[in-house]
């Protein structure tokens, strides 16, 4: 079985982002970019399924500018077999359009399982996997913390508000990853070298016949109203007194 893993290039999770003063967005000039952390977990899960003999091929896909090729190379260096770049010039592509593009890629690739991240840490949308499942008419299991792949179905344990729940999905299916599914590997230097020779195909929304134009208009982007640091107190009794004063006890 082939597993497809969509990966997004995002601002590295350790970067403290800055909002542009004129309200036009977040300043991404010279900022470190990485693979979305949930997507690293998705790649890792796919590789483990392949290593366990349950999958035959792992294909990573990214939608973005030529820079997204770097993110795909990271996936290849982790161990994915092939990569597909859906190249656009757009600064960002909305989840609905990403889902439509992925659907078109899936029509060519016919994977048995697609593993996505549960959310991209830049737009924090948490939509793409669910949308893709809807467009394909496939079952979905979001926020996965455990994946047990069988021949014609997959059992997925999900992190939900009250704890955990397990669903069984008929294949082909969509899974999105939560943080505790696994700990992604680092790519070794030899594997980074090998990844340079692995196939990376390029296509475009036009070739795939998908209209990727946005539906939402961002009117402005601002910094949240910040909190200011309060006071450090010397004793527990002072703290209790302050909390009483503040009316929260």
């Amino acid at each position: 079985m082939k597993i497809l893993v969509p990966v997004k290039r995002v601002v590295d999770t350790n970067v403290k982002i800055r909002v542009k003063a004129d309200g036009t967005g977040v300043d991404l000039a010279n900022v470190k970019m990485s693979m979305n952390p949930f997507d690293e977990i998705a790649v890792e899960e796919a590789l483990r399924l392949k290593e366990a003999g349950k999958a035959t091929e792992v294909v990573v896909v990214s939608i973005g500018t030529d820079k997204s090729a770097e993110t795909l190379r990271t996936g290849l260096a982790m161990g994915a077999d092939r990569a597909i770049l859906v190249k656009t010039d757009a600064a960002s592509v909305e989840p609905l359009a990403v889902a439509k593009l992925l659907k078109a890629v899936i029509a060519n690739e016919a994977p048995g399982l697609v593993i996505l991240g549960k959310q991209a840490i830049d737009d924090d949308s948490n939509q793409t996997g669910q949308m893709l499942a809807a467009l394909l008419g496939w079952p979905q299991a979001t926020f996965a913390s455990k994946v047990a792949l069988g021949d014609s179905s997959v059992d997925v344990t999900r992190e939900v508000d009250g704890g955990l729940e397990t669903l069984r999905l008929k294949l082909p299916a969509i899974v999105t990853t939560d943080l505790r599914l696994n700990e992604p590997r680092y790519a070794s230097l030899p594997n980074i070298m090998k990844a340079k020779k692995k196939p990376l195909d390029e296509t475009s929304p036009e070739t795939l016949g998908v209209d990727a134009s946005p539906r939402l208009t961002v009117l402005k982007t601002v910094e949240p109203t910040g909190r200011t640091a309060g006071v450090k107190l010397g004793t527990v009794d002072e703290l209790v007194a302050k909390l009483k004063q503040a009316g929260v006890l």
Partner: peptide
């Protein structure tokens, strides 16, 4: 924006061909 809501709403949005506004 609960785990149930986040799970189902984008599926609805895609079936209606609209872009969800999250959270």
């Amino acid at each position: 924006g609960t785990s149930t809501g986040k799970n189902v709403a984008p599926r609805v949005a895609a079936l209606l061909d609209v872009m969800q506004i999250s959270e």
